[in-house]
Simulated assay, not measured.
Amino acid sequence: MININGNLISAQDAKISIGNRGYKYGDALFETLKVVNGNIFFFEDHYFRLMASMRILRMEIPMHFTMEFLEKEILKTVDANDLLQNSARVRLNIDRGEGGKYMPNASSTVGYNIVVETLSSPFYPVNSFDTYIVDLYKDYYMAPGLLSGLKSNNKAIQVIGSIYAKENGLDNCLVLNTNKSVIEALNGNLFLVKDSTIKTPPLEDGCLKGVMRKQILALLQNNPNYIIEEASISPFELQKADELFITNTIVGIQSIGQYRKKKYVNTIAAEIIKMLNVKLRLT
């Protein structure tokens, strides 16, 4: 079942008009959420990122778009798909409705749809990584700015980068900004480990303001065993690192096994996953 503006509709009957601005112009935002046994992981962070993104895109936020309202709609949809007692991946899509060209009509109103699918794991596993191979994606670059950090429907680099990865036998690619700094993977934020230093690109470099990125930084900020840095990463540093890992809300942490001829371990990533799962069990 699909939730379109509060109405539960079968997947076969769920349709979006060709006049929808999200379809026509990418005038839309989305959040990908993990729901386990009726608990939406990190929902407050997802909600406030969504509200901030809507303001940046100058969407008129409906008065009823409270955190409680959207949580209720998400769980209603999860329940309608018989996944309230299981693990689910949820995509909450927000668009500006229909009407207008680049300039929306005055009558254009914000709408939403919610799509749910099954997830196999309730918590975050230590994923296999030895054969997880990445390389740089250098056909196009991300320009740093407020728009680059949004989780919007404008994902051309991620789409063609994923095609490039498949064509070249890669599991993922690392994205560069226009300053030639490495900012993220195609589907998540990037962390680099060298000795006791854990480094991730700053938001100013153009990476996504990731919810899992925020969780990991919070977990590590008072840990005396590590030095945490939000600083630019050059391609040269990738070859010198001990570990590289990718983070997002669905997977948690995906360690990278190989970049070109350099191979990595996943010692610290595995430790962080354990810390993350402990936190989730306590909340």
Score class of each variant (00 low, 15 high):
1 M>S: 11
2 I>F: 11
4 I>V: 14
7 N>A: 13
13 D>L: 13
14 A>N: 14
15 K>F: 11
20 N>C: 12
23 Y>L: 15
25 Y>V: 03
27 D>P: 04
27 D>S: 04
28 A>S: 15
29 L>E: 11
29 L>P: 07
34 K>M: 08
35 V>H: 08
37 N>P: 00
43 F>R: 10
45 D>A: 12
47 Y>F: 15
52 A>Q: 14
57 L>K: 14
57 L>V: 09
61 I>N: 02
71 E>D: 02
73 E>W: 01
74 I>K: 05
82 D>S: 13
83 L>R: 12
88 A>C: 06
89 R>L: 11
95 D>L: 00
98 E>M: 14
114 I>E: 06
114 I>Q: 07
116 V>F: 06
125 P>H: 02
130 D>R: 03
134 V>N: 07
135 D>V: 01
136 L>T: 05
145 G>S: 15
145 G>Q: 08
145 G>R: 12
150 L>E: 06
151 K>R: 10
152 S>M: 03
156 A>V: 14
160 I>C: 05
163 I>L: 14
164 Y>V: 08
172 N>G: 02
174 L>K: 03
174 L>S: 06
184 E>F: 00
184 E>H: 01
189 N>H: 07
191 F>V: 07
192 L>D: 06
193 V>I: 12
194 K>A: 00
196 S>E: 13
201 P>K: 09
203 L>G: 09
207 C>G: 09
215 Q>S: 09
219 L>K: 08
222 N>C: 03
228 I>Q: 03
228 I>S: 03
231 A>R: 14
234 S>F: 08
239 Q>H: 07
240 K>H: 02
249 T>A: 15
253 I>S: 13
253 I>D: 12
266 N>M: 03
269 A>N: 06
272 I>Q: 11
273 I>C: 13
279 K>H: 13
279 K>I: 01
